[in-house]
Design a protein around this nucleic acid. Structure first.
Lengths: 160, 160
DNA sequence: GAATTTCCCATGATATCCCATATCATCCCG
DNA sequence: CGGGATGATATGGGATATCATGGGAAATTC
């Protein structure tokens, strides 16, 4: 399971979006037909996506790694303490696809994305993202510069 | 797994390219049939290729290098920080081959390469590259001179 | 019963399958 | 040792399947 590539998908006048075949193929074989969308925890305007399995696995890691094995029990009971996994669950929605891979984008996500006629789907390996195409272009340009800097930095370190 | 030699391959009028047998043989035995292409992180005009395994291994090293072993949870959640592995995933595509080893070159790669009728496939050991033949010739000539200088420099350094 | 959602069919573009050919290296057998 | 036989390789191309998208019609929903 590794989401790759960036694909521009049209939003039709019925509000439907296609999950590209390249991404559908990365969903677990026993759970095609549905996946999870959730708001970015720290960047408004980004919607994240993953298989149900992948999303649940991330929550699990979050519970164990961030809170420790005992913390997860506490999170299950303590309604006062902040629970990051619970927060993400609340911001997430399970999305059922039509047989051809299309789904209707819930308005809450359409709003943060501020989509009009197209959505950019971006593979991030363990998950994918949905972007407003223009905002993605700006982000990609800035990331490209950071990547070049990062690569240059690597060679320096090997000499040191 | 070691990609060697440089091979000129035709691009047919359907946009198909053959992954030469010499390179196909270097793919993992349990994962022939598909591989990964991705844009060079810092040189426009170069397309890199590797097995899925090789690509994923590189991403893994990247994550460790960039974030440290504990950084993976942060990378999975933080949509604001620059994530080199995520950047590469977005610039990559999984390519399925026909049984005879051919694949249709995605337009995004055909564009950066500016190919017309031929692509140069170049083995780089742990990965391979696709080049516009003319650009590759220029690069090879410049590399040849650099290599001679480099080899000459080696003896001095080893004595020091 | 008007708006929304789901199902189904249509279509153009692309990708894939499959068959065909030319070239070359390898093999095999007398 | 020679001369086909064999097989893998690189390429071409027709036929078929899949993909992304549009849109009509039935089924929900409030």
């Amino acid at each position: 399971m590794a989401f790759r590539s960036e694909i521009l998908i049209k939003l039709d006048r019925k509000g439907r979006v296609l999950l590209p075949a390249a991404f559908r193929d990365e969903l677990p074989a026993d759970d095609r037909g549905a996946f999870v969308l959730y708001h970015s925890p720290n960047v408004p305007g980004i919607v994240n996506g993953n298989s149900r399995l992948g999303f649940d696995a991330m929550l699990e890691r979050l519970r164990v790694e961030a809170l420790g094995p005992k913390g997860s029990l506490k999170a299950a009971l303590d309604d006062e303490a902040f629970d990051p996994a619970g927060y993400l669950s609340a911001s997430a929605r399970t999305i059922a696809m039509e047989p051809d891979g299309r789904f209707s984008l819930p308005v809450e996500f359409a709003q943060t994305l501020e989509v009009d006629e197209g959505v950019m789907l971006v593979g991030k390996g363990d998950k994918f993202q949905m972007w407003n195409p223009k905002r993605w272009q700006a982000r990609r340009d800035s990331d490209r510069a950071k990547m070049a800097t990062f690569v240059r930095g690597l060679s320096d370190r090997s000499d040191a």
